[in-house]
């Protein structure tokens, strides 16, 4: 077999996909950022938040009740209580709803965006509620 025919046979095998040649991975090239409808993203985030909204809201209401009754001295305890319960919710939802993340990913909403937006929103609501309770009290 001469050199030319060997090269031709090799290129035919590569073209047909029967063998692959591993080349060094090229540096990642980014496509243009995907522009999605912000309202649609918000709607999907709210849909995700719905899966644990009741639990976190009940915890917030309980914290406000305690804060109303016992005052500013409970702030530190309630603050860490809320953080810990959010961590538990995160662990629980991540374990039980893991399959549903594919729905959001197929629509362009990543897990990171879902978690950061919902947990931040929930914690801000908690803080605002405590501040408001303090002012009213």
């Amino acid at each position: 077999m001469n050199k030319t025919s060997a090269i031709l046979q090799l290129s035919a095998l590569v073209t047909s996909g029967r063998i692959s040649i591993s080349l060094p991975s090229p540096s990642p090239v980014r496509y243009l950022p995907l522009i999605m409808n912000p309202l649609k993203i918000l709607n999907l985030i709210l849909t995700f938040y719905r899966s644990f909204f009741l639990a976190t809201s009940l915890i917030t209401i309980a914290c406000i009740s305690i804060f109303w009754k016992y005052g500013i001295s409970t702030f530190s305890t309630l603050f860490w209580f809320k953080i810990i319960t959010l961590a538990i919710v995160y662990y629980f939802i991540r374990t039980t709803k893991t399959k549903e993340f594919y729905y959001y990913q197929n629509l362009g909403v990543s897990k990171v965006l879902l978690w950061t937006s919902t947990l931040t929103f929930d914690f801000v609501i908690f803080l605002c509620s405590l501040i408001l309770t303090y002012k009213i009290r």
Binding site: P26, K97, E100, Q105, N106, S110
Partner: peptide, 26 residues
Amino acid sequence: LSVFEAFKRPDLLTYLPQFNFIPSFL
């Protein structure tokens, strides 16, 4: 063009897993 995290690009690739993935309350 290399794409490391295709799940961030639903305009390029979508994925049907072998289990039910749509939230049950929708």
